[in-house]
Nucleic acid binder design. Structure first.
Length: 269
DNA sequence: TTAAGTGTTGCTCT
DNA sequence: AAGAGCAACACTTA
């Protein structure tokens, strides 16, 4: 689930429920998620610290802790962040819990335990160290940057869109939607797109990601709320293209399944 | 029961 | 050297 739109929703959730609060307790329920840090170390460094800021870069959420640095969260395949009131309302698969004072708890949930929580000194340095490209929704990321980045890769466009070092934030689901909206076949080569196609792709990338955030990415209701021309609700076996009514097809790319409409998204001649 | 799945990393091969 | 392909990670659900 967590691609850029879902992580953006987590960020807003933190802002609405937890930002400004101080950490009164830290419960590590799964050491695996905190890497080299020991639970005692994490506890010592977080206790008493204020959740002062939040940032998102691609699929990472960064929570600013003032002088204590930043908490960097990655959600893997199906992680999430949930605020709750009573300690007893602890969600299932809660791997790390921050107690934030009377009636406020923030849980990092991750059923499959793919993902991680790290404590880092500087957010920008972390982003650079991870080798992340520009965030897909960052206003400073221009179409000309996008065009230059794609031209540098002799690779299929779907893999390029999902490569976090080229653009940060897009995964399997949203890359399918973006390519569908841009009417581009997932196997088109990134460096062979025409200028008009790159322009279209850039605009659709923004529209798709913004729409997903607006419709409450990750929620049950998102599929019903999405614009009617979106492929996402039909992204399944037996799905029908919202544009032409034809059968949705799949192909394998780098071990992932791409869903697309073979009629609306033609391969390169 | 088997397989597939929203992500990333690391390895091999070309 | 870039890029493709695959396994591994861990666990749930169809």
């Amino acid at each position: 689930m967590p691609e850029l739109p879902e992580v953006e929703i987590f960020k807003r959730h933190v802002d609405a429920t937890s930002r400004g609060r101080r950490v009164s307790g830290v419960v590590v329920r799964d050491r695996k998620m905190i890497g080299k840090l020991s639970p005692a170390q994490l506890q010592a460094r977080l206790k008493g610290v204020r959740l002062a800021a939040s940032r998102r870069h691609g699929k990472y959420l960064l929570i600013g802790l003032g002088k204590a640095g930043w908490l960097a969260l990655h959600f893997g395949m199906n992680g999430a962040l949930r605020h709750f009131g009573k300690p007893g309302d602890d969600p299932a698969y809660d791997r790390l819990r921050l107690d934030l004072g009377a009636g406020h708890h923030l849980a990092y949930v991750n059923p499959r335990r793919i993902g991680r929580v790290a404590l880092v000194a500087d957010a920008d340095a972390f982003i650079a160290d991870e080798g992340l490209g520009p965030d897909a929704l960052d206003g400073r990321f221009r179409e000309s940057d996008f065009a230059r980045a794609l031209a540098a890769h002799r690779r299929d466009i779907k893999s390029a869109l999902m490569d976090q070092s080229i653009i940060a934030g897009i995964g399997n689901l949203y890359s399918d939607e973006i390519l569908f909206q841009a009417r581009l076949h997932p196997r088109r080569r990134a460096d062979r797109l025409e200028a008009a196609e790159v322009k279209r792709l850039f605009a659709k990338m923004r529209r798709v990601l913004r729409s997903a955030v607006r419709c409450g990415a990750g929620s049950e209701q998102m599929l019903e709320r999405l614009p009617k021309d979106f492929l996402l609700p039909e992204r399944r076996r037996g799905g029908r293209c919202p544009a032409c009514g034809g059968a949705v097809a799949t192909l394998k790319l780098g071990g992932r399944t791409a869903y697309y409409c073979p009629r609306c998204q033609k391969p390169e001649r």
